[in-house]
Amino acid sequence: MKNIIVIFFSLIIQFGFSQGTEDFFTQADAFFKTYVSDGRVNYNEIKKDPSSLNQLLDMASSLSISKDQAKEYQAFYINAYNLAVIKGIVNAYPVKSPLDIKGFFDKTTYHLGGKELTLNDLENKILRKNFPEEARFHFVLVCAGLGCPPIIAEAYTPKILEKQLQRQTVKALNDPDFIKVKGNKVQLSQIFEWYKEDFTRNGSEIDYINTFRKEKIPEGAKVSYYPYDWSLNQIK
């Protein structure tokens, strides 16, 4: 009888957990569809009524997902990062750049997954540290600057995360404004300079980029990095 009771309560807890994460992904998807368009965020409208954003972050504060559930964990924290970025901008809005907000990346904390985390913590300790082979994170984590790959008008979800990661990486690495090729020279986003180790685990930066490119970059191409655009990715 005791074992039956334990199993019963385990199922209740599991169902409640799954339901909670499912609600989060559903509401996050509705939020991004409402306030994101063409890679930009309508911070002004969110500022007028931040209730849906605050509700999502409240939900995210109490959800606890094991990193062993890799896709669910990754999707949750990718969304959490993008939502926290939006929250940080909205709190200071109007603002021209995330860099104009003191401690935006390394001091301001958000209660997510039961922990107090900065944006840098989310990127480096939660995602990159736990999944060091997954460099595609850099094409879905959006820091509010126009130099980032564009934010999408949908939530990242466990069932289609692989497809979403692949799609956004292919899109970024084939974008002539993001990867600037001219003859035997190529200018890369500073993302490749800052996180070089993520892109060179199995070869060079060019090797990594060419994995996703339709038109391959010559192997001997001279690589340089163009300045990052920190202008706010806002809908004006």
Rank of each mutant, 00 (worst) to 15 (best):
F199E: 03
F31A: 04
L56R: 00
P98Y: 05
D58K: 11
P150M: 06
E133M: 13
S62W: 00
A92V: 06
F31C: 03
F32Q: 08
V140F: 04
S62T: 09
E193C: 00
T157L: 06
P227S: 08
A75Q: 03
N54L: 06
T21D: 12
F9P: 04
F15Q: 11
E197K: 12
K87F: 02
I12Q: 07
N79E: 06
F76C: 06
R167S: 09
D207L: 04
K87I: 02
F105M: 02
G203A: 09
I78S: 00
T157W: 02
R201Q: 15
T26I: 13
D177S: 15
I78Q: 01
L232T: 05
D38M: 09
D177R: 14
N124G: 02
K171S: 15
I160H: 14
I89F: 07
K216A: 13
K214Q: 11
A80W: 01
T200I: 08
I151P: 01
Y93H: 10
N44G: 07
E45T: 08
K171N: 09
S37C: 09
A135N: 07
I7E: 15
Q27W: 10
F199M: 05
I209Q: 08
E22W: 13
Y228G: 05
G113P: 05
K171F: 13
Y110G: 06
D23F: 12
N91H: 10
Y225S: 05
I13P: 12
T109A: 10
K67L: 01
Y226M: 06
K33Q: 12
L232H: 05
E45V: 00
K171R: 15
A80K: 03
H138L: 03
Y195W: 12
S97Y: 07
I179F: 09
V181C: 11
T169Y: 10
T108N: 10
V95K: 02
K2H: 07
A28R: 03
S61D: 02
K87E: 15
A70T: 04
L53Q: 01
S66K: 03
T108C: 09
A92Q: 14
F17V: 13
V36A: 08
K214H: 08
A84H: 00
F199N: 00
D49N: 10
L173Q: 04
R40W: 04
V140G: 02
Y228S: 07
S231K: 14
K129Q: 12
K159Q: 15
V140M: 01
D68W: 05
D23T: 12
A60D: 00
I152M: 07
R213K: 13
A144C: 08
F9M: 14
Q55Y: 10
Q14K: 13
K115M: 09
A172Y: 05
T211L: 15
L57S: 00
L127H: 00
L11Y: 14
K67N: 06
I152W: 04
D68Q: 11
N44E: 10
I206P: 03
